[in-house]
Design a protein around this nucleic acid. Structure first.
Length: 299
DNA sequence: CTCGATCCCTGGACGC
DNA sequence: TGCGTCCAGGGATCGA
């Protein structure tokens, strides 16, 4: 499940292995995950991959302007462009020797000027690929929230505490924070001792700042471990990550909490499996309970 | 604004 | 061994 650390790992790998190469050809199989496959076929060949970076859970392949292209001033080919790639659940983007047989479910082959092929493989096709330039690209990127590794304490607190939604939903919402998915949401909530169903508005400033701190710590450590591999994830060198060994909550239903030995529970919050420790991460009070407490307080 | 439901898709787990 | 069934999940979309 590629989230921020996994995508960062792939982007860094591709930056090393394919940045500077020119794409000379494009071949496609199934294209239902590509915004405009014809645009990719028509405008990508001839461009150099200048840089590979991460934006939330997207990879951004920054492409040079096209050289010596007839009519390039009219069709935008004299401008820089970007290929936006989302790995979805099972996407992989990695270079191979052209002679090597393609893995099953390979859907896009970018021929490179050194003879290799950059291949996109995705069994479930939950990923996304889009060719974008200028204003369209800017508009696309604008819709996303703050990068969790760069966001200031003030901005993080305001983005979370101004919303009444469940904290798990807020962490997963890419327009609030870009890059956090189910694994790192649960891992950071466990570390911050916050129940996934708590509301953004009910969290104290202190709790929210602690959440930001542990979220950043988890993400940084996961990047150092080259991400988490649960079932599918492989980086651009075909290697699995190691961070799954450090998970404290995610996937640990029925196993003991590392802090208090209580059995980790799984519940559905915001439509997603959510793993948490019922003792360390106390559930929010129901409406009924709040009312009862109020009555007791008022005698 | 917030939530749940539904759909997309395939492989893997499980039951018989 | 080979079915059928269910589930996983990021994100878009729609309706309540």
């Amino acid at each position: 499940m590629p989230e921020l650390p996994e995508v960062e790992t792939v982007a860094r790998g591709l930056q090393k292995s394919v940045a500077g190469r020119r794409i000379v050809s494009v071949r496609m199989g199934k294209t239902d995950f590509i915004d405009d496959p014809v645009a990719v076929e028509q405008h990508v060949p001839g461009r150099q991959i200048e840089k590979v970076e991460r934006y939330g859970k997207f990879m951004l392949l920054r492409l040079s302007a096209r050289e010596n292209s007839a009519g390039s001033s009219e069709n935008g080919d004299s401008e820089a462009a970007s290929l936006l790639v989302h790995l979805g659940m099972t996407g992989q983007l990695a270079p191979f020797a052209a002679a090597q047989p393609s893995a099953k479910h390979t859907h896009v082959w970018f021929g490179l000027d050194d003879g290799r092929e950059l291949r996109y493989t995705d069994p479930r096709r939950f990923g996304r690929m889009a060719y974008l330039t200028g204003a369209l690209l800017a508009e696309e990127l604008m819709a996303f929230g703050a990068d969790p590794l760069l966001v200031s304490a003030e901005e993080f607190a305001s983005r979370i505490r101004s919303r009444n939604a469940q904290i798990k939903a807020l962490l997963l919402d890419q327009s609030v924070l870009r890059g956090v998915g189910n694994i790192y949401a649960d891992e950071s909530l466990w570390r911050a001792k916050i129940h996934p169903a708590r509301r953004g508005t009910e969290l104290s400033k202190k709790q929210v700042l602690a959440l930001r701190r542990v979220l950043q710590d988890v993400l940084r450590k996961a990047i150092l471990a080259r991400g988490s591999s649960i079932s599918d994830f492989l980086d651009a060198e075909g290697q699995p990550g190691e961070y799954q060994r450090h998970h404290r909550a995610y996937g640990r239903e029925g196993k003991r909490c590392y802090r208090c030995r209580t059995a980790i529970q799984r519940v559905i919050v915001a439509g997603r499996s959510s793993y948490f420790c019922p003792k360390c991460q106390p559930a929010p009070h129901s409406r009924k309970q709040r009312k009862r407490r109020k009555q007791v307080r008022n005698g």
